[in-house]
Structures are given as C-alpha cells and as structure tokens.
Design a protein around this nucleic acid. Structure first.
Lengths: 235, 235
DNA sequence: TGTACATCAGTGAACGCGCGTTCACTGATGTAC
DNA sequence: TGTACATCAGTGAACGCGCGTTCACTGATGTAC
C-alpha cells in the first residue's frame, strides 16, 4: 500500500484502527517540524521515527521508501493550500472591495503562510528542481491560484490599466510568489525586511497592472507608466 | 593547503607546475557542467574526477573535503559576477541613456546569465539555505549590485517618482533577482515564458519606481499609480 | 460474558550499499653539480 | 651536457561510516461462537 492520506472521511466502523492514523499524523508532523531546521536529505528516518515516537518498522509499513513521505506531505499540504486559495479569492468575499484591497490582503497573507510553512516549501521547491512529478503538481497549484485570480480580475476589468489583464495576472503572480518564496528560503537575510518588501510588492503589482478605481477608457493611453518600454530604449 | 583560486597572476618562474592549475580548472569546469543536470549532493567525487580526467587523490590534494570544492566554485564565480556588475552599472556606459534603458538591458542580461549558470546558482542557493558562510557572501554580492545601482539612480533622482529611491532600488532588485532566479531554478515550467516575464518585470519595476523621462516635481502627486495604498484599503 | 483466534500495528537489531576519504605507491618535472 | 636526487603531481584500491531498508518478532485490537 502506498502513502495513505490523513483522511477526513470517517467510515461507520473505522477500517483501520484509530491509532494507526494518529501515528501517520505524528510522523508527518514530526517531519514537517524537522524540515524547519534542515533539508529532507539531512534528516534520517531514525530521527523522524524517534521524534514521532514511532519506529522504523511502523514507518516502512506506511511508506514504500523515504521519498514517499515527502509525497505524502505534499499531498496533505496541497489540499490545505487549495482550500486557502479558494477562500482568499472567493468573489463573495470581495464583493464591495477594489482589486488593490485584494492584493493588500493576499500578499501579507502569503508572506505569513510562507513563514509558517517555510520548511515544507523549501523541501518541495528543492525537489521540484529534479523531480518531474513534483514539478507537475507545483504547477497545478499555481494554475489554480492564477485561475481564481483571473476570475476576480475579469469581473472588474475596468479597474485594470494593463493592456493584457491575463498576462498581468500571470506575471504579477510570478513576481509575488517567487519573491516571497525565495526571500524566505534564503532566511530573510538580504535586502529589505520582509514586511516592508511585502508592502512594496503590493505597490509594485498595483503600479504594474495599472490598478486604479474604475478608470475610464480615456485613461488607458495616459501617463505611460504601465506600458512604456516594450523594446529596450538603447540602440 | 586549502582551495587555491585559479590565479591570473603569473610568477616569473611559476611556483607550481602549470598542469596542476590546469587540473584544478578541469575539476571546477567538470563540476559546474555536472551541476547543470544534478544537485551537488547527487554528484559523487568519483564522477567529478572521471569527467575531469583526474583522480580522487588529485582531488583531495587540493580540497580538504568535497564541500571545499563548492566554496572554490563560489569564489571563482563571485569574481566574475563582481566584474560583470561593475561593467553593467558603469556610469560612463549610461551617460546619455535614461534609467529605463538601463533596466531594459540589465534584466534580459540577468536572465541570460542565470540561464547559462543555472546549475551553479541553484547549488549556491541551496547551500545558502543551510550554511551561514554561503549566506554571507551571497549577501555581499547582492549589496554590491545594490550599491552600484543606487549610485546610478542617485545621479538621476529626477527620473524617479518613488518617494524613497533607495528603498525602490532595494525592493526592485529583490523582485527582479528573486523572480528570475526562482523561475529558472524550477525549470521555467510554470507561468509565462521567461523572456515574456523578463519584459513584464521591466515594466513592473519601471511602473513601481515611477521611472519616467525627467518628470518635474509637479508630476509627483499625479496619477496615483506609484504610491497609493500604503495601508490596506479594507477595514 | 468469556475464550480462542485472526488481523492490525508496532518494534528494533541486523544488513548492505554507496560514497567520502585515506594512503602507499608510480610517474613527471625541476635542480644541483 | 649528463647524472643523481628532490619535489611536485597524480593514481586507484581499500576502508569504514552512515543511513535506508528488511524481517522475524511482540503486543494490541477486533471478532466469532
């Protein structure tokens, strides 16, 4: 049997004993906690089972190998993330707010999320570099966020000055995600402090996408601050 | 003896035989080439010496351990990078050009550099996560670029609309570096294609920093696209 | 309600592979006279 | 110019540590009658 998820559905008579599922949860939690300090490769199975008050045998009864553990952690996180994304970009939530309000909430939230789950995210990113399967699911998570955000933007096109709103969403999302992620991965050590950077990121995306309070069509040609230099100005 | 750099200074009678230095260069080159495909930890010393037509003994005559090799690679790269940075942001080079021309050249150049040295950069970034010494030098390299860019910006303050140009440089640099780096590390697979993204990055930074052709003071209050939402608009 | 058995869950000593590192050796280059 | 010696540079088999993985076993829980 391959990695079983910590299911949320309970059967009438639980098919597996409850303690089994608890052990799995303990193993996952312990690993995630250890990942805050070290890389996945530098954590031994022995350490994991010790920290989760389990045993190597119990470990290999669940996972075909050490790698599958990371896959299982990913699966657990993916579900959480999808739910968070849906909640964050739920159109109902932003009914009476402008797009910049969305950004001013979403970006700090993203920073917070990355801070709390730093270890996990670092491990996933590292794995995605070399493992095609991880890259695929990573991609899916991003697409999911992009789709939600595009829906939100599409419903209020008039607030967006950028000539290609879909591209603006894609590129803006890339900038924000990459910046937050890499910055925190490297330990927040260089450049501006993270919270300041987050604020500036919001400003940047707002300026880039040309987000303003329902500007009319007449404004599209104005000011030149959003789509000026398509080609390098130098010859 | 610890890791010797591939020196450029030649003594009258070379203190070491030339072939020794050639071997070192071969080892470094082979490692960098192997790093394009795999992580440093996944490359064995055996593979490195095979690929560089050398031997384990020759290897350990130069490096106290495998880790020192990465340090040596870093040292070699750091020097190259410093030179490239200086050349790129040389004030003389941009005498008659505006800031957006600088960006429109520097960003694609950065993309190109990251593409070519992807393996190295990935290895350095991974190491910086867990190794304080690597983080320090990484930081220095960034500060060097930031300083050069700030000098360039300081000389043409009137082109910049952002209320705090130093912060704008720091934050803008973070966004560009992080985005380009992480995007390429993950293999360019998600979101917009890299060259398109690079173009959008330039637009974003230009819009964010409020870069325009020597705008007067009267323009600072205008349009609102650069420094609108300091606080979240939501309550 | 109690007993006997089946299955689930967990245990940890032992194994073995892979890789970093060592070291006794050979060969190449430089130098003294 | 030639010989003898010193040092530099390189070689690769052998070692051993660490960690992932296996497996024969014990203990806990559930079920049939």
């Amino acid at each position: 049997m391959t990695a079983v998820a910590t299911s949320s559905v309970k059967w009438a008579h639980p098919r597996t004993q409850a303690r089994s599922e608890e052990t799995l949860a303990r193993i996952l939690d312990a690993t995630e906690s250890l990942l805050m300090q070290r890389r996945f490769e530098d954590i031994s199975v022995g350490e994991i089972v010790r920290q989760s008050r389990s045993s190597v045998g119990a470990f290999y009864a669940r996972f075909p190998d050490k790698d599958a553990l990371l896959g299982c952690l990913y699966e657990r996180f993916r579900k959480e993330l999808a739910a968070l994304t849906d909640a964050m970009f739920d159109p109902a939530r932003w009914q009476n707010e402008s797009l910049d309000a969305v950004l001013a909430t979403a970006v700090p939230f993203l920073v917070q999320l990355h801070r709390e789950r730093q270890g996990l995210l670092r491990a996933f990113a590292a794995r995605a570099c070399s493992d095609e399967r991880f890259r695929q699911v990573w991609k899916q998570a991003r697409h999911h966020a992009a789709r939600r955000l595009k829906e939100l933007v599409a419903a209020r096109r008039e607030e967006v000055g950028h000539p290609d709103p879909e591209l603006a969403v894609e590129a803006g999302l890339s900038m924000v995600l990459c910046t937050v992620e890499l910055k925190l991965q490297l330990g927040e050590l260089d450049g501006p402090e993270m919270d300041v950077l987050a604020q500036e990121l919001v400003r940047a995306v707002v300026a880039y996408a040309g987000i303003g309070p329902s500007r009319g069509v007449n404004q599209t040609e104005k000011s030149g601050s959003e789509c000026k230099i398509g080609q390098p100005a130098a010859t």
